[in-house]
Structures are given as C-alpha cells and as structure tokens.
C-alpha cells in the first residue's frame, strides 16, 4: 500500500512537443483516482511516466516514500493493465499470470498457489491451461487483471482497460474492477477517455486537457461545480448547457424574469446548467420551444432553443412532452458562471 506523489512532473518529447506541462498532485493510500480527458490530453503519458515506461523530463515522482524517478518499471512495485491486455499470446493463462513472479525468482510452488488464488478470485480457474486466443474478450481482460493482482503490488495502473469491450461487458467489468480494488485496498490510477467510467469508478477524478490539469475533485464536485467550460462540456452526457449572456449591475439575466447574482464586472459571461436542473413548469417564467424529443426509455431529452441558443432539458419518463412551445423554470442554485475569455468558473 502506498501513496503516490507527483511534484512538477513535466514531459517534453525529443521533437519539442510538450505532452505534459508541470503537474503536481498527491494520491492517498488506497485511493482510486481516475485520469480522464480526450485523446492526446497527456493522460496516458502521465500514467506511463508513473509506470516507468516513459522518462520523466523534469519533476519528482515518489511511490510510497521512495523517489522512483530512475527506478526500473519492474522494481517500482506496480502492476499495469493495458488497453489491449498485452497478454503473451504463446503462453497459457497460468504462465501469463505467473510470468512476473517467475522473473522475481519466486519459488514454483508459491507461484502456483498465488496463480490459483488470483484465478479463483477472477473466475479463471477452468481456463488456466488455455491460451489467450482461446478466450473471449472479457476473459482476456480478467487474465490481464489476474496478472496485476498476483503481484500484490503497492499500486495498480490501468490504461483504458475496458475500451476494447462491448457496452454490456464494459458495465459489468467496471463494477468488478471497482469491487476488486475495494477488497484489496490497493492504490489505483485509472486512465480513460470515458467520462461514465470516471464518474462511476473514481474516488477522485483528475480531468486533463492539452497536457494540463483542468480540475481535481470527487465525481460530485466535478459534475456539479465544474472548474471550467471544458470540464462542464466533457463530463456528463448530455453535457452541461452553456449559454452566452451579459452581466449587468451584478446580475446575470437568464431568461424570463430569472436571473442570478454575479460577482463580476459588467460584460459578457457564460452560464451553465445541467439538463436535469431545468424543469417543465406551466407557471414558469421562461418560454421555451421544443424542437426534438429524444426518447431514451428511462428518461427523455428535449432539444430546443432559448434566446436563440441551443438548450437540452432532461425529464423523467413520466413527463410526457411533444414538440412545441412550453414554459420552463431553472434551478438557480445549480447555475454555474464562467469567464468567456478564460473558460474558468467565476
């Protein structure tokens, strides 16, 4: 078990491209942290630097209380699960799981016992003598997990481990991985571009964009109090509604009679509201025209325009709506204001 600390970690490639700007954060012992962001945001580079697969240009990395900047990946006491699983295709499941232990000169009987334990934990016992090519996608994923678990590491690293699975399996594995991590209590860093995975699995989320941290926080904080328009539109499906408005006399006018207080100078602002923080309200202040109703079973999404800008409203399945003019009201507590120049929350 270990805490992880990054101090001003920076990555510049030989061609001069800065993949990660100086970045610092700490991860507590046993915590499950998700690095999320669009492709090319530097999340994988960051993870690979922690793993030791990529050199750290500047900065200090420690796992436990040990500085590991120049420690070989095999000696960092970590385990990693790869996107394409990276199973050794010519080895059986048993050998795949045990290979790392074998290289650490663990006694054969110990290896067998540990492999058996891991296999039992992951329901792989009956597949131990198969080769990866004889397994389904989900089973391969489990073998990759087994290879990580068996090492009993201080830190788990996951590099988009579920992105090769179909939606149903992905959902199931999400729960399994989270449960496993809870049971083992191992500090974990999980990289994904899927915001649903980030929201459901993380103790804390780190949102990255173009090599820099946009926000660090619990899923609730990230979702309800996004630190920037980037986080607001990246996290949540559908994303937060972002609308342009003017601030005058310390207030931002949203529509109808509704307005929120703004501690900013007069001028343009962006205000954001989650689709589920808007209600249909026959007595509401704001007129709204529904163009399209998107039927999603458990709920509906209403797409339309407010003050000439796109707006999406989330209503439960019990609310029957058809296209046409309606009236809405907005949960003012949920409104977030952003600076339109910097994109940062006010």
């Amino acid at each position: 078990m270990a805490q992880v600390s990054l101090k001003n970690i920076r990555k510049v490639y030989p061609n001069g491209y800065e993949a990660v700007v100086p970045t610092s954060f700490n991860i507590a012992d046993g915590e499950f942290v998700v690095l999320v962001g669009p492709s090319g945001c530097g999340k994988s580079t960051l993870l690979r630097m922690i793993a030791g697969l990529e050199d750290i240009t500047v900065g200090e990395l420690s796992i436990g209380d040990r500085n590991v900047n120049h420690v070989d990946p095999a000696d960092r006491d970590i385990a990693m699960v790869f996107q394409n699983y990276a199973l050794y295709p010519h080895m059986t499941v048993r050998k795949n799981i045990g290979y790392g232990l074998k290289n650490r000169k663990t006694a054969a009987s110990d290896i067998e016992a540990k492999v058996q334990d891991a296999a039992k934990m992951l329901n792989l016992t009956e597949f131990l003598d198969r080769k990866p090519s004889q397994l389904s996608g989900g089973q391969r994923q489990r073998v990759a997990m087994g290879r990580a678990v068996v090492r009993d590491p201080a830190l788990f690293l996951f590099d988009e481990p579920l992105s090769n699975l179909d939606a149903k399996l992905r959902h199931q594995m999400r729960i399994e991985i989270k449960a496993l991590q809870r049971r083992l209590g191992v500090t974990s860093i999980y990289v994904t571009h899927d915001q649903v995975e980030a929201m459901t699995m993380a103790d804390r989320i780190i949102v990255l964009n173009t090599g820099r941290i946009e926000q660090i926080g619990t899923p609730t904080e990230i979702y309800h109090r996004p630190a920037s328009t980037f986080v607001a539109s990246f996290m949540g499906a559908p994303p937060m509604n972002l609308l342009n408005a003017e601030s005058a006399d310390g207030r931002v006018h949203l529509g109808g009679d509704m307005s929120v207080a703004a501690s900013t100078a007069d001028g343009p602002v962006i205000w954001g509201i989650r689709p589920e923080d808007i209600e249909i309200d026959p007595t509401g202040d704001i007129p709204f025209t529904v163009d399209i109703v998107e039927e999603l079973g458990a709920h509906r999404l209403l797409h339309g325009q407010l003050n000439g800008q796109d707006l999406t409203i989330h209503v439960s399945k019990d609310v029957v709506v058809s296209a046409g003019p309606i009236r809405i009201s907005i949960n003012l507590d949920a409104v977030v204001l952003f600076n339109p120049e910097t994109g940062l929350a006010l």
Binding site: L53, P73, A74, F82, A86, Y88, P89, Y99, G100
Partner: peptide, 26 residues
C-alpha cells in the same frame, strides 16, 4: 504490439529475457 514489451518490462524481463521468453516464441 508495443504493450507486449511494456508488460514484459513491468513483469521484470530484461532485454535478453524478453527476446528469449517472448519475442522468439512469438
């Protein structure tokens, strides 16, 4: 795949071991 050598490095295989244990059989 790139990840194979990365997985092997985390599994503690050096260049000689990776060649003999993984690359040649592959």
């Amino acid at each position: 795949p790139e990840e194979l050598v990365e997985a092997a490095r985390i599994d503690g295989a050096g260049p000689v071991k990776f060649f003999i244990d993984i690359l040649v059989p592959l």
